[in-house]
Design a protein around this nucleic acid. Structure first.
Lengths: 153, 153
DNA sequence: GAAACCACGCAATGTCCTTGCGAAGATGAA
DNA sequence: TTCATCTTCGCAAGGACATTGCGTGGTTTC
């Protein structure tokens, strides 16, 4: 992708707010004809600027009331150690986010659970079973203040 | 919403993977007629199980190459202190996630930045300016291992 | 057992999406 | 400057899609 102009940004911004907006509404909002808008969107998708669309589910409605932040330290930082850990953590459906980090610990995870009992199960069956882990530190979110899908443009 | 049956779950799951899927494709995927599928989706949206749809932007394409995890401690935990901090942090567009936490620190933030210089600006102009902050600890993500929008169903 | 209820499929209608086409403006070389 | 080329636009048409009303069948309730 060469560069995003004002209209591209408007398209991206609108679909960030409402990813299921019709092309007709979108084109009107950004001040283009439907055909021109459709073609631009096609380019934005194919070039990877927009990498997908996702329904946002209410965690409450789905009974996921707990969010845990987990700091994990491994026994080493060799490439094999890291890749084995990562392959394993990817299999756990409750892990929403996992980053390899600089600093005091190796990985940080964001884990969704239905309740404390559910988290205990996840901790026992998944987190404790991850390879090369030497330390797990779980903190629980008391309240969600912000949860944006993307950076505000 | 009373309860989600198998078909509702299939709808939600499909739209989680592709939020812009047409109703025609969706109905075929879950084994319903288009009309029945449209009516179910309408209920799922109005009842709040699906709270929205969002385009997923490639941070790389938008030049957000850095992700920071920031732990913040406040000078106190009074209601006024917390709400003033939260009102201020909500204004920073680079903060993707903010949780009030139990444990060693008060808040955890996930902050997107274009590069180190950009992060330095965010830290100076936004984070340091947040009220009641006594300690800021920034760690940087070396690699994204997982970033799911929702719990895997 | 009858009535009420619920979710379904079918069909129709109005809307929407996409593609081809020609025009307008920008860019660059002779 | 002038001409060729390239890009992006709007319009129009054809096919796909979404939604609504309606009738049916199965289930619950009294």
């Amino acid at each position: 992708m060469s560069e995003l102009d004002t209209i591209d940004l408007a398209i991206v911004k609108a679909l960030q707010a409402n990813g299921r907006m019709s092309n007709a509404e979108l084109s009107q909002k950004v001040g283009l004809s439907a055909s021109a808008c459709s073609r631009r969107l096609d380019i934005l998708e194919k070039s990877g600027v927009i990498s997908g669309y996702h329904a946002r589910l209410s965690n409450k409605a789905l009974d996921y009331k707990m969010m845990a932040i987990v700091h994990i330290s491994l026994s080493g930082q060799g490439a094999k150690t890291l890749s084995e850990f990562e392959a394993a953590v990817k299999l756990c459906p409750n892990v929403l986010v996992c980053y390899l980090m600089s600093g005091d610990y190796d990985y940080i995870l964001r884990v969704a659970a239905k309740d404390l009992e559910d988290y205990e199960r996840i901790h026992r069956d998944w987190l404790s079973a991850l390879p090369h882990v030497v330390k797990i530190n779980s903190s629980f979110a008391l309240r969600e203040v912000i949860d944006r899908p993307n950076v505000g443009l």
